[in-house]
């Protein structure tokens, strides 16, 4: 009866024709205490399947939100770049302005010097004019 049914299920089982429910019946029978002696060799099989199912995965999985992380890195990099270009430009402009200032100063200095010399010559001219007048008057 019961044993008969188990034997029939076993046969079906090895042909892979059993349903999940029938396989459960076999598992229950073979992991139980009252396995018929001539079928005992199969109990290791079903006991193994049941015990193998008890194994658990216990390791922690580090779930990084890596995408957001990279996004922030790139934002920071762009910020640094923009600041660098901005301040670099400012520095460059200041140096150029300083150079232009120095050049202008030099040019103005040169102008002033020449103007001074010019004035001295005019002073000579004035002397000449005076002497000329004196001569005219004496005549």
């Amino acid at each position: 009866m019961e044993l008969d049914r188990i034997e029939r299920l076993l046969e079906k089982y090895f042909e892979a024709q059993t349903t999940k429910a029938e396989e459960q019946v076999l598992r229950d029978y073979f992991t139980g205490d009252s396995v018929a002696e001539h079928l005992e060799q199969y109990s290791a099989m079903f006991s193994f399947f049941s015990s193998a199912k008890q194994e658990r995965f216990t390791k922690q999985v580090p779930l990084k939100t890596s995408k957001a992380y990279y996004r922030w890195i790139s934002v920071a990099a762009v910020a640094v770049l923009v600041f660098g270009i901005y301040f670099g430009n400012q520095y460059q402009e200041r140096r150029e302005a300083e150079y232009a200032y120095l050049q202008t100063k030099k040019a103005l200095g040169l102008l002033a010097q020449n103007l001074d010399r010019g004035t001295k010559k005019v002073a000579y001219l004035h002397e000449f004019e005076e002497t000329k007048q004196k001569i005219y008057k004496n005549n």
């Binding site: 290791a44 099989m45 006991s47 193994f48 015990s51 193998a52």
Partner: peptide, 12 residues
């Protein structure tokens, strides 16, 4: 029993 379970695993 344990031994025979290991045996099944080895067969597998």
């Amino acid at each position: 029993v344990n031994d025979s379970l290991q045996w099944v695993e080895k067969i597998m």
